[in-house]
Design a protein around this nucleic acid. Sequence first.
DNA 1: CCAAAAATTTAGGCACAACTAAAAAATTGT
DNA 2: ACAATTTTTTAGTTGTGCCTAAATTTTTGG
Lengths: 251, 251
Amino acid sequence: MAQKVAREIALRVPASCRPKSAKDYEKSPITESIEEYTEGVYRLQEELDEVGTGDIAKYMSCTSASVTTMLKRMSDLGLVEHTPYQGVRLTEKGEALSISLLRKHRLLECLLVDFLQLPWDDVHDLACKLEHYISEEVADNISKALGSPVTCPHGNPIDATTPVTGRRLSDCVPGETVRISKITDERPEFLTYIKTIGLLPKTVVAVQSRTPFGDVLTVQIEESSESLPIGRDVAGSIWVYGEKYPEANRN
Amino acid sequence: MAQKVAREIALRVPASCRPKSAKDYEKSPITESIEEYTEGVYRLQEELDEVGTGDIAKYMSCTSASVTTMLKRMSDLGLVEHTPYQGVRLTEKGEALSISLLRKHRLLECLLVDFLQLPWDDVHDLACKLEHYISEEVADNISKALGSPVTCPHGNPIDATTPVTGRRLSDCVPGETVRISKITDERPEFLTYIKTIGLLPKTVVAVQSRTPFGDVLTVQIEESSESLPIGRDVAGSIWVYGEKYPEANRN
DNA sequence: CCAAAAATTTAGGCACAACTAAAAAATTGT
DNA sequence: ACAATTTTTTAGTTGTGCCTAAATTTTTGG
């Protein structure tokens, strides 16, 4: 009663939440998609010597044709150098953007796991989305609130410029005892799998055997023994610390 | 060194982060924009008796033409009932969506202010964006982690179905002493302003005077005295608890 | 009550970013 | 070395959601 009257009202959606019009793209042409592509190229560059249109298409789950169009835009924005029919390489600007996004991504994962108690194998997707919307300042505050963590819950460095140390579990030889450092493949199904077998960061495992043609690695975790395929998507995305070549295996 | 070799790689962007194609919209046609519009209609319905295309256009800072197109889509999705040239009304489905979004929004604001220590007058915009990306489960976890707060930092109920109590500061009369309950206008500039004069939720203020034509209200906050325009966008969006008509003012 | 003003809708167009299909370039195999 | 295959690019289409301009409906005022 006498509550709803006036016509003029100040309620407004924040400009940042308003759907974009053609004009808005002129002002800030770096869209969420462009960011996602840029970060994708960074991640792929960490795994591959050269990144091609097809690699990005696989990463983004889209057609090569779509990638070509995007690469044109990214190139115009100075994020990548693209030589048609050759490959892509991030520019300094593109690299800086990726590093910033990875920092936000990994700090968000820390927040989601450490403070909000969300499942370790589940937070990657959400962080992937949220990373585009938080500012450096918000990231700073997350870091402060959590006591300045240095890695995400999967062991990856919050500061992506940290030099790579350790090596892949797939490069280990029988007889070695190593400690899991990080998991670079963060697909939920994969993380759920390695969680159930107990391959979490900081776990110590002993490499037991490796099949003749080098396809399967057997590792001992705690009391049990597990077999893993060697390849980019399993033992290759699990990184470890530990002695490189134990005496027993020197020729 | 033997680090980058393989071609086949498992790295994939999560489906939820991939830019949408035409096909994707068929599967989940409720876009972020649709959500933002729906929530907007809810907010406007709380302030106005009837909500028209123009009201929404002001709220979204876009043209009425754009609103008409969106209302068509929202109507097709069963979120609103729209009678052309008349007005809009949320359906139960639209209301449920709004209530869910408001809960996420306000819990996010709690997280941003209480845990991440972000400025009180600054978190609304960010929460407005993030609310579209978190699930009910994430919202539940935020609530748990923060000890089940019942209002956002601006005093608005996390459960939007909470019956409205209290009244507007603009409806108070000289002589009353009231306690600020909530601020419904969350534009940063406005919040910054009322923060500097100390009009935060839970503050007790005394209404001192009101100009003859009812345009300006003078209130005493702590030691100082402030004048506020009466209208939807200032004293009208500040809600208070307190005795309705103090004895002194009964005719 | 009818004309002027205001609000709303229709019509036509644009940018983003996906898609398919077809053309062009690069790589591979004999 | 040249034909076949693979990879990449070009061309043309779709859907979202904005815009402007014009047409329509509703409201307001003489």
